[in-house]
Simulated assay, not measured.
Amino acid sequence: MNNLVFNQNGAALTNSLLVAEKFGKRHDHVLRDIKNLIDSTQNWGQLFVSTTYTDNSGKSNPMYIMNRDGFTLLAMGFTGKKALEFKLQYIEAFNKMESALINKFTLPQSFSEALRLAAEQAETIEKQQLQIETQKPKVLFADAVEMSDNSCLIGELAKILKQNGVEIGQNRLFEWMRYNGYLCTRGELYNQPSQSAMELGLFELIKRTINNPDGSVRTTCTTKVTGKGQIYFVEKFLRKKSA
Rank of each mutant, 00 (worst) to 15 (best):
E133G: 12
L183K: 10
F237Q: 08
S151A: 02
M198H: 05
L4S: 05
L173G: 03
K162V: 06
D214H: 07
F78H: 04
L107N: 09
Q230G: 02
L73A: 09
M66A: 01
S242G: 04
N7V: 02
K162T: 14
R26N: 03
K127I: 01
A83M: 03
T185E: 15
T185G: 06
K96Q: 14
K59F: 15
A118C: 09
L47M: 11
G227K: 03
G181L: 06
E199H: 08
G169A: 13
R239A: 11
S194F: 06
A197C: 08
L37Q: 09
Y182F: 11
T51H: 00
A197D: 05
V49Y: 15
F86T: 15
N56D: 15
V166C: 06
I102H: 13
S50M: 13
F94C: 08
G70S: 01
N43M: 08
L238D: 13
E123S: 07
I38F: 01
E85A: 13
D149Y: 09
G45Y: 00
E204K: 10
I38C: 07
E98S: 07
T223E: 01
E133K: 06
S16K: 11
E85Q: 15
Q89C: 02
T219S: 13
K81L: 14
E133R: 07
I160S: 13
V5N: 00
V234M: 02
N61A: 07
M177A: 11
F48G: 02
R178A: 03
F6G: 03
D149I: 13
M1H: 03
R178N: 09
I206C: 12
A158N: 02
N67W: 05
R32Q: 07
F23E: 08
N61E: 10
G181T: 05
E199R: 00
G165H: 08
N15C: 08
T51G: 10
K224W: 03
M63R: 05
K87M: 04
L18H: 15
G229T: 05
N211A: 11
A75P: 01
G169F: 08
F94R: 03
D69Y: 14
K240N: 14
L73C: 00
V30M: 04
L200G: 11
G10M: 04
Q131C: 12
F6M: 05
A12W: 04
W44I: 15
L18Y: 12
E123K: 14
S110P: 02
K236S: 10
D143E: 12
L101A: 07
L115S: 04
A93H: 08
R68S: 03
E199N: 06
N191I: 13
E188G: 15
L183S: 07
I102E: 08
N61P: 01
F6T: 12
V30E: 14
M97G: 04
D214M: 00
